[in-house]
């Protein structure tokens, strides 16, 4: 005589309690490829991560551009801060591939930003095309934790697509492309950031403390854009929103002349 309960006992591989969760997982697994959440680098800031699909997706390129030509160093600092956050999370090294004529980071400046210069490899190339080839080779090699390309033009559609393909697979690095100011053509970047300098945080004595940037997320696949003033904490390697202290006029956004 068979016990009827044995027939209704669910398959051990399927958790019976989570039917809706399982359906959701199936939907994600069967959905379009870009909807599937891949590995991501959380920025550690709920306000930001809520706009991103769990953080900066690892593998596909992210584009960072200064809001104005004079904000080049701010955009570079923002991109390097993201690299520093990635290097803080995983062992390995970062590669900076630069087109000629673009300012390269200063070693002591990297250290001041919280990025160990000994973990940064530099490659000076002969042009944007070589930057993209180097980034692609580095993506295929899968041996570096973060990649940053400094290009003089932008990220055109075709190299963007190639980088996208090269970044697919297990254990991808963080890939950032820094382009100069100006309107970039549409490309395959997962996110596009526009960064400008913002008045820095003040320490107790009124001196200049950590750098602050005004970062605008212009485009984000599987997310929505946003606009934040971010402060970089070099010791914790994390971005944070400026504290709105009464005395901190710059951060509060008020008291403009």
């Amino acid at each position: 005589m068979r016990n009827p309960s044995t027939r209704t006992r669910p398959d051990p591989g399927i958790p019976s309690a989570g039917i809706p969760a399982r359906l959701a997982a199936l939907r994600t697994a069967l959905g379009p490829a870009d909807r599937r959440p891949g590995p991501a680098l959380p920025l550690g800031l709920p306000a930001l991560d809520a706009h991103l699909p769990g953080g900066l997706a690892l593998g596909p390129p992210h584009e960072v551009a200064p809001a104005e030509p004079a904000d080049g160093a701010a955009a570079l600092g923002f991109a390097l801060a993201l690299c520093a956050r990635r290097l803080d999370a995983v062992p390995g090294e970062a590669l900076i591939a630069a087109a000629p004529g673009l300012p390269l980071p200063h070693g002591h400046g990297l250290a001041a930003l919280g990025l160990d210069p000994r973990r940064v490899l530099l490659l000076e190339t002969g042009g944007d095309a070589e930057v993209f080839r180097a980034l692609e080779a580095a993506l295929h090699a899968r041996c570096l934790a973060a990649l940053l390309g400094l290009v003089g033009g932008g990220l055109p559609l075709k190299p963007g697509r190639r980088l996208h393909l090269a970044g697919e697979g297990p254990d991808p690095p963080l890939l950032l492309v820094l382009r100069p100011a100006g309107l970039g053509p549409p490309n395959g970047a997962a996110t596009r950031w526009r960064v400008a300098s913002a008045p820095a945080a003040r320490d107790r004595f009124g001196g200049i403390a950590g750098p602050r940037w005004r970062a605008r997320l212009e485009r984000c696949r599987n997310g929505r854009g946003g606009d934040w003033t971010l402060e970089w904490d070099r010791d914790a390697r994390r971005l944070r929103l400026p504290e709105r202290l009464a005395g901190d006029a710059a951060a509060a956004g008020g008291a403009r002349p």
Binding site: L110, L121, L123, E124, A141
Partner: peptide
Amino acid sequence: VGALADALAQRLGRRLVRL
């Protein structure tokens, strides 16, 4: 990384440097 450095050196003719 060594293999990548060699590949870049051959492909682009440029060497990886470290500060």
